[in-house]
Design a protein around this nucleic acid. Structure first.
Length: 510
RNA sequence: GGCCGGUUCGUCUAUCGGUUAGGACAGCCCCCUUUCACGGGGCAAAGACGGGUUCGAUUCCCGUACCGGCUACCA
């Protein structure tokens, strides 16, 4: 019996959660749930300069909307608290010091200015970004170059310093990535990353190891951008003596911008006109709001579905999966290695599929909200809405489309495209509609088929082709050339509205 | 520049050495529809390049090219 699977998503609370982040959550979640494991949310707030108020709540809200609720988190609690790195601060220093004591790390007293100077000094055409590595560290102010007494003095005086990992000279670090297979790095090419910052906070490199260890994480999923620093993490696991408990790693492929190349960013969404964040995010500093998939009218089912298909498939032609189906079918072996360009058109297709697939009941709340956003109030006891949804859902891609496709059921069209009728309008047609009004007003039943029969009989009696009359009728009822079957519409809006709208348009045609 | 990773239609992808290289989105055409959609049918569209290995490579290996990621006291 192997130990219980525990995975974590560890975002830093710096702003809205974007597509790539949510997909990382998704793959974490799917893997954990399939294995009967736990999904943990851990907030990586070690960079106090980048902390953004509200971001943590936003992340929780987003996960909730997606249906990817954590088993443990800062708000859900759990046996491995704290779930915010800042609250674990005291313990990081201890581990960093231990590494120094064991000779795996060292104190560095270089000031930011000195580091900058080093980068300038060693910068050449061949080496545009010099690293604090095995060669360079010999020329810097650290406990490797300073004698012990001097180091002690500086520390005793409270000189600002960081703790850096001391990369071994000549080792090959290998590990098996669940997605990429065997990956290896040579330590001579890896720099001495800072583990503990001058403010006493750990960098990601230390914190991720200490926290994953403390929280008994068994599998670590993260974006491909972390691959280059993996050897640092592997070494920290080893140096801290925890190697046997190190999680398995999986580096997920990136989500790329649709045009050109490169990681998808918020900017691309702004530029190309599609959301990148899961939900609306308002920057507390600028007050600027960035649109989210939710507010654009995406269903969480579709959002999760489309994210899952960015880099994974089950090997069949099936593309539509519910969350439970994904949990059942997901396999890390089938996750791609290469990045995927985000295609907004395809994203909309997923939403359309889900709108068609979902029953009226699941759509009702969201659709009602869209109408109310546009100032069209729909009473709870109004039985009309479900019928309208049923009638128009097949032609709606995003939630706001329901307003476009269905507002005329609730209120007479504000503009009527009479110009589409006028050219072929004549007295015979005018007479027909006048008689139609009289006929409809006398109807003792009011349902689509009956209305259609009556319409056609009257047309025949007037020696008119129904085809010439349907379009005008449609325009009278909905205002334009769109919508479901005209008689279905007439049946739903009722005799009073039907007759009124005909009369109104007849007036416009005078 | 260095290190690491990646590379099948425009896009997302299937293929676990032998296929007319399949599906989906988008595009175009047709049908259905007395509107617009939905739906149905069809067309067009791909293995970066060069070497190996092999009876046979999209598939395995090497090189090249191209793309990306990283190269912070950010994650």
């Amino acid at each position: 019996m192997s130990k219980k699977v525990r995975v974590r998503f560890a975002p830093s609370p710096t702003g809205g959660l974007h597509l790539g982040g949510v997909r990382t959550v998704l793959f974490n979640y799917l893997f954990a749930k399939q294995q009967g494991g736990d999904f943990i949310l851990r907030i990586e707030d070690t960079d106090q300069g980048r902390f953004v108020p509200g971001a943590e709540e936003y992340i929780l809200d987003t996960l909730r909307w997606c249906g990817l609720e954590p088993d443990e988190s800062p708000v859900h609690g759990g046996p491995y608290a704290p779930y915010r790195q800042s609250e674990r601060k005291p313990s990081y220093r201890q581990y960093a010091e231990q590494l120094v004591k064991d000779g795996y790390a060292y104190y560095a007293f270089d000031t930011p200015a000195e580091l900058e100077e080093m980068r300038v000094r060693f910068k050449t055409a061949e080496n545009p970004s010099p690293q604090y590595n095995q060669q360079i560290r010999e020329q810097m102010r650290n406990s490797l170059t300073l004698d012990a007494g001097e180091t002690q003095r500086l520390l005793a005086e409270g000189t600002p310093h960081v703790i850096r990992i001391k990369m071994p000279a000549n080792e090959t670090i290998r590990f098996t990535d669940m997605i990429r297979g065997e990956v290896s790095f040579h330590t001579s090419q890896v720099d001495d990353k800072v583990l503990l910052k001058a403010d006493g906070m750990p960098t990601y490199h230390l914190a991720v190891v200490v926290d994953d260890y403390a929280m008994k994480i068994t599998h670590a999923f993260r974006g491909e951008e972390w691959l280059p620093s993996a050897p640092v993490h592997l070494l920290v696991w080893k140096y801290l003596g925890w190697e046997s408990e190190m999680p398995e790693w999986a580096h997920l492929p990136l989500i790329l911008k649709p045009d050109g190349n490169g990681k998808l960013s918020k900017r691309d969404g702004d530029r190309l006109g599609f959301p990148v964040f899961a939900m609306d995010w308002t920057d507390p500093k600028t007050g600027e709001t960035t649109i989210g998939f939710k507010e654009r009218g995406f269903l969480p089912e579709a959002f999760v579905n489309l994210l899952a298909m960015l880099g994974w498939n089950d090997g069949t032609d099936n593309e539509i999966f519910s969350l439970p189906e994904l949990i059942e079918k997901f396999s890390i072996e089938r996750v791609h290695k290469g990045g995927a360009k985000f295609d907004y058109e395809k994203a909309k297709w997923y939403n359309h599929e889900w709108i068609k697939k979902l029953g009226v009941g699941s759509l009702e709340l969201g659709v009602k909200a869209e109408f109310e956003k546009k100032g069209i109030l729909i009473a709870d006891e109004d039985a009309l809405l479900p019928k309208v949804i049923e009638l128009v859902k097949d032609r709606c891609t995003l939630l706001p489309d329901f307003v476009q496709q269905g507002s005329f059921f609730f209120q007479a069209p504000t503009t009527v495209e009479v110009d589409a009728i006028k050219p072929k309008w004549d007295d015979k047609k005018n007479l027909f509609f006048t008689e139609l009004i009289r006929g409809y007003e006398l109807s003792n039943t009011w349902e689509a088929q009956g209305l259609e029969n009556e319409f056609k009989e009257l047309a025949a009696a007037n020696h008119l082709k129904p085809g010439e009359l349907m379009l005008p009728f449609r325009i009278m009822l909905v205002g334009g050339k769109f919508g479901p079957g005209v008689f279905d519409i007439a049946a739903l809006i009722g005799m009073y509205e039907t007759v009124n709208r005909i009369k109104h348009t007849l007036g416009l045609l005078q």
